[in-house]
Computed example of a mutant assay.
Amino acid sequence: MTRSGAVRPTRAADLPWVVCDGAGMAIEPVSEFLRELLACGNGTSSCRSYAYDLLRWFRFLAAVDVPWNRVQRAEVRDFVLWLRTSVNPARERSRPGASAPGAINARTGKSSLSAGYAPATINHALSVVAAFYAFHVRTGRGPIVSPVPAQSRRGGRVYSHHNPMEPFASHKRGSYRQKQPELPPRAVPDDVLDDLFSRLGCNRDRAMFSMYLSSGARASELLGMSVGDAHPGEGRIYVATKGLGGIKQACPAAPEAFTWLALYLGELTGEGHRPEPDEPLWWTRRNPLRPLTYTAVRAVLRRINESIGANVTLHDLRHTLGLRLIADPQVTLVDVQQVLRHRQITTTGLYLRPRVDEVIARVHEHYTRPRPEPRPLAGWTYDEQDLSDVFGEH
């Protein structure tokens, strides 16, 4: 399929991203939908994510030569079939020598990403297209009926009024929605973590990765911190929580993370750059100094993974913290929910599931445990009191 069009940033406060067609012109129906998203309280990152999903959809429509407001259910079906059989362009950017798609890493036990689109990606794309057409059905600018089949009302993971003590009822998936495997949280083995931290080459990276592991902050949340968001005396940092429109919440951080942070800020001051409390906390190491980006941090982690033969991601550090807290008998499930800032306690409950490697180790121990020798029978004996109770006194 021809990769026509693009997602471009703008300087407009009411529309930070636009989707352009092959001629470089903004697609107005998409722009109206993105404005609606922002008006409903969604953040700019969500706006960007939806823009890329709609770009993929409009590229498909351009390939099949169907106007967006003349789409039928058959086009949605063909779009899903195309996603199921196509190669994800993001996988094509892998470096030579990288692990084969779907291969299991020997050190972490985690599989590499598959070459195609994941079921969650397909379902998200369907949800975005469905929301796009639902908006234009309401405004009267699109088709009379949305071409995307409705999703099962209770088929998702959100059960707002579900009693956690009762089992979940099974419900039929919506049409074209893919089966998603319920993967357990991924913890990084201790020996891999030791190798990872030994490869960090500067105090900035040591401070940053220590905070990732001890705070449970997401990648973008930690990178969005300002200098004033770090409070060493209180042992906490403040991050803009995902989905709350920039509202900052407190997270714990380990003492060693603040130690590395003090060393890093001291180096910045020694180089003549002393950021103000409202300026970004994380900066590049080379001149001209710029705020650190997610792409740069991923590059640091990718080089370390290549040197130690692992496939650790930043989000794995968040899972590792969650599993460590769950294993501590002094920390409750509600405490873990607060640290990870999950909206639903059922999401935190996924960390209660036993890890696969722990289960395998216990089963192997069961196989190798010596069996107790059976005790030989010494013959039958009777209690005299029992005999007297049954037969009476003689």
Rank of each mutant, 00 (worst) to 15 (best):
R3C: 02
A6T: 08
A6V: 10
R8T: 13
R8C: 09
C20S: 02
E28T: 14
P29C: 11
E32T: 07
F33R: 05
L34P: 08
R35N: 03
L37M: 14
C40P: 03
S45K: 06
S46F: 12
S49V: 08
S49M: 08
W57K: 11
F58H: 15
F60Q: 05
A62L: 08
W68Y: 12
N69L: 03
R73M: 15
R84P: 06
T85R: 12
T85W: 03
S94H: 00
S94M: 00
S94F: 00
P96V: 01
S99E: 03
A100W: 01
A100Q: 10
N105M: 09
R107G: 11
G109Q: 12
K110P: 01
G116Q: 06
G116R: 07
Y117C: 10
P119D: 08
T121V: 14
A125M: 07
L126I: 15
S127N: 14
A130N: 13
F132N: 04
H136S: 09
R138G: 01
G155Y: 04
Y159E: 03
S160E: 08
P164N: 04
A169K: 09
S170W: 05
R177L: 14
R177G: 15
K179H: 14
K179W: 01
P184H: 08
A187D: 06
V188E: 03
V192A: 13
L193H: 14
D195H: 04
F197C: 02
R199G: 00
L200I: 04
A207N: 03
Y212P: 02
G216P: 07
R218K: 13
A219E: 10
S226F: 07
P232M: 08
G233S: 13
G233I: 09
R236G: 02
Y238W: 14
K242S: 10
G243R: 01
K248I: 05
A250R: 03
E256F: 01
A257D: 04
L261N: 06
A262T: 09
P277N: 05
L281A: 05
P291Y: 12
T293A: 09
R298G: 08
R298F: 00
I304H: 09
N311E: 05
L314P: 00
H319L: 11
T320Q: 04
G322M: 06
L325D: 07
V331R: 15
D335F: 00
L340V: 08
L350H: 12
L352E: 04
V359E: 15
V363F: 15
E365G: 06
E365V: 02
R371W: 02
P376E: 13
P376M: 13
A378D: 15
A378C: 14
W380T: 02
L387D: 01
H394F: 09
